[in-house]
Design a protein around this nucleic acid. Structure first.
Lengths: 192, 192
DNA sequence: GTCTATATACAGATAGAC
DNA sequence: GTCTATCTGTATATAGAC
């Protein structure tokens, strides 16, 4: 049902490229400097366009924020599919990927969290929905509701520490072997 | 070394009362509406004083934020003492009190988190210090570093969900019996 | 599609009256 | 101690040229 015109080579993207660059810039500002600093002006400057140029793609601040939330939903689709297919098991995959690796999904989640903490209702709702989707995907892999709570909370804790790292010293997140041991402990405590 | 004049009855407070009311208002705005909305103007209005009146107590936005961080440190002193004295055990006390009950400490932590997410370096540093103090107090009660990580992360996860609740629907936090079961699971997995 | 220029509102902070 | 102006900078958004 797709009619992708693949006969042009250079501008391969269906979603306008400039639009994605603006979202990248907005995301980076939210992560590095917080909601307050992520203004239309700063976003335009960071994306290398003018304010007017930005407002052609996103007619308002609300539209820009909605665009970021839309990106989050798309990235979570992919993540849930990868989690289900993970050879390690869904729980191990989920806990391990809950620590920020600067991949697109991690970045978008932190950015949307900043929006949520700024009182943006749609951002809070989007994060709750994402959390619920993850919980649904993990439920078959955990012993009971309490075990699922534990897995979800450890993941939330990891994200909380990631989110606090902004602009400051890195948070106290288990790395390498420490993470492997933590995952083993969580799996032992929650295995279905 | 203190020369407390206790001979006056009515104004019993050493820290000026208006100052505390301003901090209460600032805190409430941060929690309910986010950092962006917690302006000097809005804080003054919520505290029932004028902008000039607020600026008598806190000469700048930075001073106001520093005042909130100072309040956090004082509240954590009390909490650590209560945790050590808890008949339930430190781990159970810690996990149970990690869910927002609208007590002064919970409120101040969420408020300072908002500041931290807005890029306020001193707020991030203060939260890291608080986390470290808790970890030190809990270390003797956990089997090893991994167990301690697990307890800390569950607590962080609880706070993360509390923090997201702002202005929106309540987060998916275990309550009542579910919380008791979770604490039992965490204790079984981490007991020293 | 992308730009400059501008309107309107509100932020943090100062000055000085009461 | 607490107030009412008021200054200065910056945010979102619009208008309209190129």
């Amino acid at each position: 049902m797709f009619s992708d015109r693949a006969d042009t080579i250079e501008p391969m993207s269906r979603p306008p490229r400039a639009r994605e660059l603006v979202l990248d810039a907005f995301e980076a500002l939210l992560i590095d400097d917080g909601e307050r600093a992520a203004t239309m002006d700063a976003t335009a400057r960071a994306a290398g366009v003018s304010k007017g140029g930005l407002l052609y793609h996103f007619g308002s601040k609300d539209a820009l924020e909605a665009g970021l939330i839309q990106r989050l939903d798309a990235l979570v689709d992919t993540d849930i599919a990868e989690m289900a297919a993970s050879p390690d098991g869904a729980v191990a995959y989920f806990v391990r990927t809950s620590v920020m690796t600067d991949d697109p999904l991690d970045r978008t989640i932190i950015a949307v969290s900043r929006l949520a903490q700024g009182g943006h209702a749609a951002a809070s709702a989007a994060l709750r929905t994402v959390r619920e989707r993850w919980a649904d995907a993990l439920r078959p892999h955990t012993a009971d509701d309490t075990a699922l709570d534990l897995v979800m909370l450890v993941s939330d804790g990891l994200y909380y520490n990631n989110a606090l790292g902004a602009g400051g010293v890195a948070g106290p997140i288990p790395e390498g072997a420490a993470m492997d041991t933590l995952i083993a402990l969580v799996e032992r405590a929650t295995r279905a």
